[in-house]
Write a protein that binds this DNA or RNA. Structure first.
Lengths: 192, 192, 192, 192
DNA sequence: CATGAATGAGCCTTCATTCAT
DNA sequence: TATGAATGAAGGCTCATTCAT
């Protein structure tokens, strides 16, 4: 019935989509294992495809990096307003949202490192994170300020970068507890 | 007879020392300009020596990195007890000492990044920093805890790594104020 | 019964012919723009077909090149006898025919270059040009020799290659006037 | 006696110079065999050195090409005034000089091809040839014009490019006689 | 001891060609 | 038959490291 219209649009992409999924999985794993600078060949090998396939799907390394992390960044961004609506106070929502962000970063070893790199290949990644998350963070900070819970002059951009930096190296080293440090940082924001 | 060789030895040493000094200066400048991953040849060129000379003096990159920063780490380490003795309260001493550390890091672009790298070449650097500074930080934290100024359970190692991480990227980006974030972190330590 | 298959065959042919025409146009444009070494994909994209379609129609690059230029080579070849019949003297006919050839070449940027290439992909092209044009040139030269207008010992093959070579790079460089040089070359053939 | 000053300047370069010579020989041979686009690796292999050695001596391909042909271009350039002084008439000198140039080109298969390439890597080569040879050709043309031997309006740049183009493919093909065609071209210049 | 020439592994990227859909 | 995804060989270039001078 509707099978005609269903078939018409995607067609050939069955295998290509499978490949793209394999590529993203392989890249994600490779980024964790060896950092986002991992050689393209290694990713290709892990995905069981030729290098050309990677270049076809993701012409630049930035395209690949963004693709790997896009879904999770989106989910994080969307969680902000939801937490604000559901939580008791704005400050609680802020803490929970930051925890969400931290959990995301520290489970993706190498991502926090990539976020602070100023290499050209990462500019797009950097920009994508900021474009998506700074407004959300801003909203949460504003609400907490309006509720008289935290200092007024805090900058969302700086705070997110700080949180991101604190997550660097977490996961490699059991002696380094990024979550605790982020809590201290947020605690430092509180009035009184 | 052997007066020649006797003379020869100190002379060589003088040369070698001069060379080592030039090397360290060049490496320091190169690290600031291009990060601690800067090509060996660039350092050699800046120092006006051949690459072989660098390898002779510093067989591994870690040896060079540690040598470059040793004096400043020492100075920082020694400042800890002095501040504790001179400052009004342990907490004031802690804040001042952390500021000293932060100033050191953010004026050495690339150093904070190197400290968090888990590349083999940087292990020695990492270890040297921690060996030297963790005990000092511990001492300051203990004093502040004993004075009832900060939370008791804080770990010096984690704190120093966090402070180091917060310094990453400072200096490249006027929108990122690492000093402010470190202040918030330390503020988060305070009781009440 | 077989009316269906009878209809089917011409229909396919119509499609195929349309495709082939689009391909030749696209290839012609691409050759002009980027030389006959232009990537197959570029031609396919310009033609709006897949690369596979090109390989189906023209298994080797030479096949495609010859197909692109066949019509114009034919037209040039056929103009020879016509000019000989219409012009006042054989020498005039020769000059006009050479000018025709030169105009053809210098309006197809990259073609003269391709003609002199000894790459395997161009052998067929080379051969086709020569098979078709050398006899015509020979006829014109013979007539001019018979009329006592030019030196007798001239070889059509060499002359055509020389004229082709002189056309290389014409059109890129306003300081290089291929037509003028070809005129000098033909002038050099004249007796006296 | 003067051995001290002799030794002081060159030193280490003994092997390096040997290598450079080997490189130029290998490159020259490789250019002839495979054109000036020959892979760097092939040249390195032929010379028995690593690719790095080539890049050390000749940072760009253009540097290598110019180095390979410099001596012979110089010799050709210097022969111009000498021929003009020694030959009976300017036209004779011109013919002999052009023959010298032609002999040079057709014994370096691939060189004439490279000269007409507009690839970036060859710009320097192109420029070097023209800078060095156009003035010499101009001088010879001027003298022949002044002697009333050839047409006055001939441009040295265009003539040299034409001669160069006529030499393309000579040597691969016994049926193509570039020398003869160049003679015809120069004959075309003659008055009457 | 210092030098810097040489080495070559290793990464990136492009594209001709094949073949499953 | 047409498509275009996938492949992988090929070539460019950079540097860490070694070693003859």
């Amino acid at each position: 019935m509707d099978s005609g219209s269903e078939r018409a649009v995607p067609r050939k992409r069955a295998d290509a989509r499978r490949n793209e999924k394999a590529l993203l999985d392989a890249a994600s794993a490779a980024f964790v294992a060896s950092g986002v600078d991992v050689p393209v060949r290694d990713i290709a090998a892990k995905a069981g495809v030729g290098v050309g396939t990677i270049y076809r799907h993701f012409p630049t390394r930035a395209d690949l990096i963004v693709a790997v992390y896009r879904h999770q960044i989106e989910a994080c961004a969307e969680a902000g307003p939801a937490l604000l609506a559901d939580s008791g106070t704005p400050h609680t929502a802020l803490v929970q949202w930051i925890n969400l962000f931290v959990d995301f970063l520290i489970t993706k070893h190498g991502l926090a490192e990539a976020l602070q790199s100023d290499a050209a290949a990462f500019q797009t990644l950097h920009a994508y994170f900021l474009d998506r998350l700074v407004p959300v963070c801003d909203q949460l900070l504003d609400a907490a300020v309006a509720a008289g819970e935290i200092r007024p002059e805090t900058d969302a951009y700086g705070l997110l970068r700080g949180v991101g930096n604190l997550c660097i190296g977490a996961g490699n080293d059991p002696r380094y507890d990024a979550r605790r440090l982020v809590q201290l940082l947020i605690a430092g924001l509180r009035l009184r």
